[in-house]
Design a protein around this nucleic acid. Sequence first.
DNA 1: CGCCGAGTTGAACTGAATCAAGAAACGTGG
DNA 2: CCACGTTTCTTGATTCAGTTCAACTCGGCG
Lengths: 194, 194
Amino acid sequence: MQEIRNQFELFINGTISDSEWSHFSERLVREEFLKGEMVLENGDIENHLSFIESGVVRFYFPDEENDMTFAFAVANSFASAYDSFLTRNPSSYSIQALASTALWRIDYEDLQKVYELSNVGNKIGRLAAEDLYLKKFLRELSFMNDSATERYLALLKTQPELIQMVPLKYLASYIGVTPQALSRIRRRVVKVQK
Amino acid sequence: MQEIRNQFELFINGTISDSEWSHFSERLVREEFLKGEMVLENGDIENHLSFIESGVVRFYFPDEENDMTFAFAVANSFASAYDSFLTRNPSSYSIQALASTALWRIDYEDLQKVYELSNVGNKIGRLAAEDLYLKKFLRELSFMNDSATERYLALLKTQPELIQMVPLKYLASYIGVTPQALSRIRRRVVKVQK
DNA sequence: CGCCGAGTTGAACTGAATCAAGAAACGTGG
DNA sequence: CCACGTTTCTTGATTCAGTTCAACTCGGCG
């Protein structure tokens, strides 16, 4: 729990007072998901803001045969269908645990209370939105500038954990190619390294 | 000016009181740019939040031979390097008028004062961020799912004004293909319609 | 008039999609 | 703990969309 607090302070780049932290933390609930279990089904309204203690999840649009994976989240980051959470509309996508995953979650109503009691909530909210926006922006640029191979190499460099934990077919979808293409890309990359 | 107010009320999906509006509007300055003029040079810090009365602008990363255009903005929308505006860091991209363009602008310091005096500011800020995020999200999905032809057709449907006003080479960059490729795509599309 | 940037068109080439089949890994039930 | 079936990954052959390089047309402007 102390670890969670550290991560939050890191994220907002400041300290959180004991009273502020207790307002927040006493509403956090720990929840575990097994590999393959759904954290959120598309069509449901996202009711939680979740922070990942350990594990991995994928965000995707379900589709017979190939659903489209557009994001992953690993330990020490947020996992939430944030648009659904904010707008209170059903989520258009699903979230699934790709391994045993432990979350610390606060639900919508409780978070509103935290907003009233302190102002870290607002700061976290604003920073979370900015963070999301920036990530999408980088991803947009990557799609415009880089080849599939470059996106794979970037992933290797910035998130090597993912390559280990996530099945190739989901990585392929995320990168924007078919599993066959990614399999060949990977083969070429390994050859070059040898 | 009344028109601007209407557009803002439309955007926040609510009404703005006379006093709130006057706090805001008395700080708005009208500015005009000729075709080709720079609204913001990359490397400069964005000091304005601008609302477009008329005209078009393009957002792009300058680069010898082919700079990369990643967004356009037309009348009744915002035009600002919002990330630079928020973080007070130099902008990594430039904004240029593609036609005679009239802006209503508020500068950073003045906007902070508006934030203190009323709460529409916060609402506009949050909604602007959400709006930006959603647009990027849709663009990400388009890059993952759609072909260049499909992206062009989507643009034709949702922003036909752009096709008229913006030179093909910038549209091509935005869509993510070379000007030659877009020229051919357009030819095929026109043929199909006939 | 002549130049220059924007757009078009052609030809060769390339990265990735698709279709198809086989190999490896994985989980489940006996 | 092995055997079987299912899913995931790999590999090959073919096709296709888009790139690259190059030449040519068109319209505007000094």
